[in-house]
């Protein structure tokens, strides 16, 4: 009989391969020591399959998504404020600068009818709000891309 025992690594490899009895190396079949070691590894590796995988005791998705959503508006809200103030300053500046030119234009709408004035004001506000909403939506998308 060959008295050179298999190395522990060899025995582990054989156990990992899950070989059938007839496929085992001759030495294992003849050597009680190596055979016992192989058996122990086989039992151990089979038991590994019964171990339940780890899982967290808390809701990972909830925890993580909360954190992601908290991190998001912080950065975007700052930019929204910056953008809004810049826009207000710009519009006021333009209005003041072009006031002499725009005066006759505004006088056109100076109707004594207050309902007519209200209608003009509401319509322009609605158009402005829709345009702003669209600008902001596009801006947010681009900002998200930039921040990532």
């Amino acid at each position: 009989m060959n008295t050179n025992h298999l190395t522990d690594e060899n025995i582990q490899d054989i156990a990992l391969k899950n070989l059938k009895e007839e496929q085992l190396p001759m030495h294992i079949k003849e050597c009680t020591e190596c055979k016992a070691s192989l058996k122990a590894y086989q039992v151990m590796m089979n038991s590994m399959n019964e171990i339940r995988p780890e899982s967290f005791s808390f809701d990972v998705s909830e925890l993580v998504m909360q954190r992601i959503k908290v991190a998001e508006p912080e950065s975007s809200s700052v930019w929204v404020y910056v953008l809004a103030s810049a826009l207000i300053i710009f519009v006021t500046g333009v209005l003041l600068f072009f006031m002499p030119v725009l005066k006759p234009f505004f006088e056109l709408f100076h109707s004594p009818d207050s309902m007519y004035n209200l209608f003009v004001a509401v319509t322009s506000l609605c158009v402005f709000a829709f345009l702003m909403q669209d600008v902001l939506r596009q801006y947010k998308q681009k900002e998200k891309l930039l921040l990532q």
Binding site: P53, E54, V64
Partner: peptide
């Protein structure tokens, strides 16, 4: 997050 939660648990825990 859902797809990788198990692997992350396996490492972190």
């Amino acid at each position: 997050v859902k797809q990788t939660e198990r692997l992350v648990a396996q490492i972190v825990r």
